[in-house]
């Protein structure tokens, strides 16, 4: 058995399998720890019925944050790789730098920036964009904090390094002689990008999508601090089921549903593309 498979088995498959009996159980008492296995498949149906919309919302937010992150990350990675020159290590360091501070502290800092009296809304108002942004639903009654937009922005900024780094790595692997050859054959810069850089950087794109979509779908901090009660994500629900409602079997069922969906997304992403191609940093 390869080390990779052992790793997957020990740290991914086994913990999840251990949840399966719990997810089919019932608590013996309201405040006790004991549960009894009853093969209660209804736990799954109940959590899907009660929390299905939040599950959909979570993947929606994660997908939007990843898409927005890609729009930001791709040009950034391109600039670092092809325009960075001797500043390249420094630029990569700057991309990673925010990740060195606490995830929690960053979310809390965003609450100041996105608040009703904060600089972002002041800028939006100064540009006369409050009305239009409200009309398209990016602001809620002129507010930004405690909206879906704030949650997605928070997720995006947190995910950026996970998108930029695989892209830089993938672009690093592009042989500069290919670009020279394209130029020698009179390819325009745009054609050079479309026919050389883009196809060769796609493995980085795939890796980045995986590395950002997975943590984003299970994020608990951004919806808690930056969202409102209409913007909660599925991890908040699981936390509430486990720690507040003391419904461990239902929390386990919902966790397994979430993990199954994430696994499905990963498999779809890997389909048609060998995992060995992914330039994971």
């Amino acid at each position: 058995m390869s080390p990779g498979l052992l790793w997957l088995l020990g740290l991914y498959a086994l913990p999840l399998l251990a949840l399966v009996p719990l997810s089919l159980s019932e608590p013996l008492s309201r405040f006790g720890l004991e549960t009894v296995f009853r093969g209660r498949v209804a736990n799954y149906l109940e959590v899907l019925q009660a929390h299905g919309p939040i599950l959909v919302r979570s993947f929606g937010y994660a997908g939007l944050a990843t898409a927005l992150g890609l729009v930001l990350a791709y040009p950034l990675a391109y600039a670092i790789r092809f325009r960075g020159g001797r500043w390249q290590p420094l630029l990569i360091g700057l991309v990673v730098l925010p990740s060195l501070s606490s995830y929690l502290v960053r979310a809390i800092a965003w609450t100041s920036l996105l608040g009703d009296q904060g600089p972002v809304l002041a800028l939006v108002a100064a540009l006369g964009l409050t009305g239009p942004l409200d009309a398209v639903g990016l602001l809620r009654d002129g507010r930004l904090l405690n909206t879906a937009t704030a949650v997605i922005l928070g997720l995006t900024t947190n995910l950026l390094p996970f998108l930029v780094l695989p892209l830089v790595v993938a672009m690093e692997r592009i042989d500069p002689r290919l670009l020279e050859a394209a130029a020698d054959l009179h390819a325009s810069p745009w054609r050079c990008f479309v026919q050389v850089v883009w196809p060769l950087s796609r493995p980085g794109l795939s890796a980045g999508i995986l590395l950002s979509l997975i943590p984003a779908a299970g994020d608990v901090v951004n919806p808690l601090f930056l969202g409102g009660p209409n913007d909660r994500m599925i991890a908040n629900t699981i936390e509430n089921l486990l720690l507040v409602q003391l419904q461990a079997p239902r929390a386990a069922a919902l966790t397994l549903v979430l993990m199954a969906l994430i696994t499905l997304a990963v498999l779809l992403q890997l389909r048609g593309r060998g995992a060995q191609e992914l330039p994971l940093p």
Partner: peptide, 22 residues
């Protein structure tokens, strides 16, 4: 909550939002 009348459900952290004008 559905109508957006209630912005948040809070613990003591409503203090920050009161002070900051949220």
């Amino acid at each position: 909550r559905r109508d957006g009348q209630i912005r948040r459900f809070t613990g003591n952290d409503y203090q920050n939002d009161l002070l900051s004008g949220n």
